[in-house]
Design a protein around this nucleic acid. Sequence first.
DNA 1: CTCCGGAGTG
DNA 2: CACTCGGGAG
Length: 216
Amino acid sequence: MNRQSLLMNMFQAMLDTLGPSRWWPGETPFEVAIGAILTQNASWTNVEQAIANLKSAGLFAPKAMYDLPEARLAELIRPSGYFRLKAGRLKNLLGFLKAECGFDITALAGRDLPAMREKFLAVRGIGPETADSILLYALDYPTFVVDAYTRRLLTRHGLLPEEATYDEMREFFMDVLDPDPRLFNEYHALIVRTGKSWCKKATGRCEPCPLARFVP
DNA sequence: CTCCGGAGTG
DNA sequence: CACTCGGGAG
């Protein structure tokens, strides 16, 4: 079985078991981008609380957040963890948006993917996963998001070695899958949901896992 | 490899 | 109590 068939079969197996994910539904691209920073090594429930704080303070808007003192911003996003660090990273992202598109992130959609990816990666605090998350989930670019669960999936199934880099894992999918943002969106979401339920960090519960039959 | 950190889980 | 989370920088 070739790699494309294998990856599509795994996708279908997860979809059959879990159903569609509807990640980041009904949210604005701006909210997705902010969430992508806040969720770095943090659980999503904490991120929701941080965003709720910003909204209830009437400050959840690009310029308002950009003008906010960093210490005040940090207090509002405290529930997301690493709050001082992430306040600075949010400021970096907002400064980038101001310079690049006058705070209108939707203006960044539909451009050259590799060039736009490099621009986001040049922002301090935006690494490959955060960049790809914003490009895919906020701006609808066909880029594949690799995270800790994706790494576990690929290495535990013997598809790539432990030493594989982020970009190697990303290309493992992108080299053979249709560059469809809807597919990449759902695929990553399903990997995360499968990882949370079965592919735990210490030891996976492979028995009931929808991917159990895809053994090396 | 270490630091950054609150919140939920068991 | 220990462990983990929709990572990234120095």
